[in-house]
Design a protein around this nucleic acid. Sequence first.
DNA 1: GTTATTCCAATATTCGAAAATTTGGGTAAT
DNA 2: ATTACCCAAATTTTCGAATATTGGAATAAC
Lengths: 232, 232
Amino acid sequence: MKKSPETQKLKPSSTGDSSAGQDVLSRLRTDIVSTVFEPETRLKFADMTKRYDVGIGTLREALSQLVSEGFVTLETGKGFKVAPVSAEELIEITEHFISLEKRAVRNAIENGDEDWEANIVAVHHRLSLIESLPWAERMERHSDWVQRHRDFHESIVAACTGRWLFKLRSIMFDQLDRYRFVTKRAPQGIGETKFEEHRKIMVATLARDADLAEQLIEQHINDTTDRAIKLL
Amino acid sequence: MKKSPETQKLKPSSTGDSSAGQDVLSRLRTDIVSTVFEPETRLKFADMTKRYDVGIGTLREALSQLVSEGFVTLETGKGFKVAPVSAEELIEITEHFISLEKRAVRNAIENGDEDWEANIVAVHHRLSLIESLPWAERMERHSDWVQRHRDFHESIVAACTGRWLFKLRSIMFDQLDRYRFVTKRAPQGIGETKFEEHRKIMVATLARDADLAEQLIEQHINDTTDRAIKLL
DNA sequence: GTTATTCCAATATTCGAAAATTTGGGTAAT
DNA sequence: ATTACCCAAATTTTCGAATATTGGAATAAC
């Protein structure tokens, strides 16, 4: 099983633990978030082994982790399915995420150093490169956007000293990503609004204004969720 | 591979999805929580397959889930290790658990029905059977106690309607369990105190007194954590 | 004596064949 | 027409052999 060269794709803020099995986990998660597999879809091994070119065992291992993360459900004997989505769940996830993210931002602002600041600026720049693109082009690179958007919000709270606070907010963020895909079909105008919101969040964070940063993030997330519910 | 009859062991409040693979996950988690494997211990497949009498693949699948749950770490190529512990982490986990549990209890008290109440009483009784035992005997059945203690606290918040609130509080509870084992070496007197605390929590919950239940739980958890830190 | 290299044993990782389970449909009995 | 039962196909679950990787000891080079 030769590794194709494109595996070497850059992963800026990722842990960097390359491995055949970890790759399929990552790809699977991205495919679910990007709704390549719709909610409730049965994930059959026969199809999957061909799509990802790995053995049944390896696939099973990746799927098992996604069960813990809440992306996939497992009924013994019936196999794996993509977890369902609902407006109700979106609302709850949003609630928890905002609560955790606000604490994480405050913590990060208190503890962040110069490297943290520099990374935010760098990652925001990468995000803005896609967000300032014409709508059609931006849509083509949607999966890139998903990754960079995640990186941006993560960079903001990267200096958070609470390991579990960070972990819990990341779980919730990944879940929100599942719902965010809906806004992919949103009208064109939204793009610019989000672009501006991200910039404001960055500025407030770098200015160490925790109150403002908290407030902006809360608005930013609530706004996205409201829009998503209407399109759900 | 014939299923031994004792597999039919009763699992009161569990999901009830019996399966060879799920069993080993459950057993493995219990063993880690019960510190059968000390933190930082390497989890070698050669030993494990004999201990749990399952294949490598099945074991790997269970370990993968435990990585997501935070009990185990995985360094690619180097294998699985039991996650480390620290007083710092214990404090943070306690903080998050109390915050989540308080919300979950209040929610459960608002939404619980008669079945919920009946289950609490039943599960508490099972717990009390062990907790009222002489100290020496109780220690012998420590792993039973771990399970029943978990079931008790879970039954209290079982009626919580927030699926993710319940899930997040469960993640934190399981993590706390890892640290609770330390109190296994605590002086004898503690047992009776905890016994009484559990009873009070049950009574307050059944009386639908959310404020009191919240307060009792907070004390109960903080007390356990304080004791654990001293013994760490 | 120290550093670098090679090799080997121990271990982790991956895979697909075999066993066990579920699903769907066809047949017979009511 | 409806239910119960059984069989066959499809699918999941489990396992251990085959492969790849790591760590360290023995040897060689400096």
